[in-house]
Design a protein around this nucleic acid. Structure first.
Lengths: 210, 210
DNA sequence: CAAGGATTGTTATATAATTAACACAGTTGC
DNA sequence: GCAACTGTGTTAATTATATAACAATCCTTG
């Protein structure tokens, strides 16, 4: 598949940031940008930008730079943001609910098709258009629907059980907010662990040692 | 200050994870652990663990390994988790509220002393024990209280204004959930940017290119 | 439409991070 | 209390990442 054999994670994790800044430039009706100017805005280096982009192809033009809209579309395609993925939320507490309300899943390709919780008080209430289902319905739902991504917002005690079950249904893509490293359990899954506590601790270190 | 001159960010970002796993081992009443065993549990390498820890001092003992509780305490100290920091939340929407409810600020050293929002409907309502204040009270509050950390959960349009104001009060530590790179504006601040959209996009890339 | 300037794609260099190697200190068991 | 083993701290080698350099290419302008 073209050039992108084994792109390093360092590069991949920078792509969303490029996309973000390109969207802003586009909103400001900037038509073209050079790697040097973009580097200045993003506090990066021209070298890095050019090298990152060239992992995927030559999107620029000598003597001109990059077309903002063109590059934006290319990165969107690279990131796979034109695809759609059926997504469910497990753990529909205030945190899970806030997560799905706060971000643009739709825009980024995720279709939220169901929410689950084990709290009887929450079951039956709504998150947006969706009615929260009981955890006991999870098996049935997964066997009848093509679930591609799971957002996990549950306490770490419950993770292993739920995880094994989902894995059994062939679900391997997780956006994980629970305080548990999913990758420690399976290694053929795609997992984004968002460890907010880790982030707070890192902040603490940096403040304390500033 | 001892050994820790210019520890690399890579090392620092691993510390919370060590701490997390050590807490679990401690909960399981494990008394001692070798770098090799810990590496196996954490899916890391013994070399990396030993080298990371030795940035801060020799906490282990030849032929024995590391005392779980001892090492846990050391890392806690290194991370600065014994310190206390006065913290305020700006943007007390469902997301901001969920963030402060979901995590153990207390345990990690952060004392939440006030919440602000510009939505008149939210002002006066409560988050835990705290009553949400109007943004207009921010100046007054900052001048009368020692605010050390700010959690930002506001739309990116409002960030620059609020940020300049806070910076004016000498506040330089931010936990930032807004879709804006604070480091692009000032460079003498300590910022943890949590870009959840970026995380979602990275996940999308990895699913799409698996 | 040619000459000069700009800016890329790419290769080469320098820096950073990870892994491996190993000497030596401390533990354990007989 | 000695021999064999375990496992650290540390230095060395390897790999990965970021920066710099530059020739090739395309735009721009008079």
């Amino acid at each position: 598949m073209s050039k992108n054999d084994s792109i390093s994670m360092s590069v991949i994790r920078r792509l969303p940031r490029y996309y973000r800044f390109l969207c802003e430039l586009s909103d400001q009706n900037v038509e073209r940008i050079s790697s040097t100017k973009l580097a200045k805005i993003m506090r990066s280096t021209a070298s890095q930008i050019r090298q990152d982009l060239n992992c995927f192809g030559g999107f620029g033009q000598q003597g001109y730079g990059y077309s903002v809209d063109g590059l934006k579309k290319e990165i969107k395609k690279i990131l796979g943001l034109n695809n759609r993925y059926n997504t469910i939320l497990i753990g529909a507490g205030s945190f899970g609910a806030a997560i799905v309300k706060h971000l643009d899943f739709e825009k980024l390709g995720y279709d939220l098709i169901a929410c689950f919780d084990n709290d009887k008080d929450k079951v039956g209430t709504k998150i947006g258009e969706l009615t929260i289902k009981d955890d006991s319905e999870l098996d049935d739902f997964c066997s009848k629907n093509k679930v591609e991504v799971v957002i996990l917002c549950i306490p770490k005690e419950n993770v292993e059980n739920i995880l094994d079950k989902l894995y059994g249904f062939g679900i391997k893509n997780f956006w994980n907010f629970s305080h548990y490293d999913i990758t420690s359990r399976y290694n053929d899954t795609v997992v984004e662990n968002v460890h907010l506590n880790d982030s707070l601790m890192t902040l603490c270190y940096r403040i304390s040692n500033a």
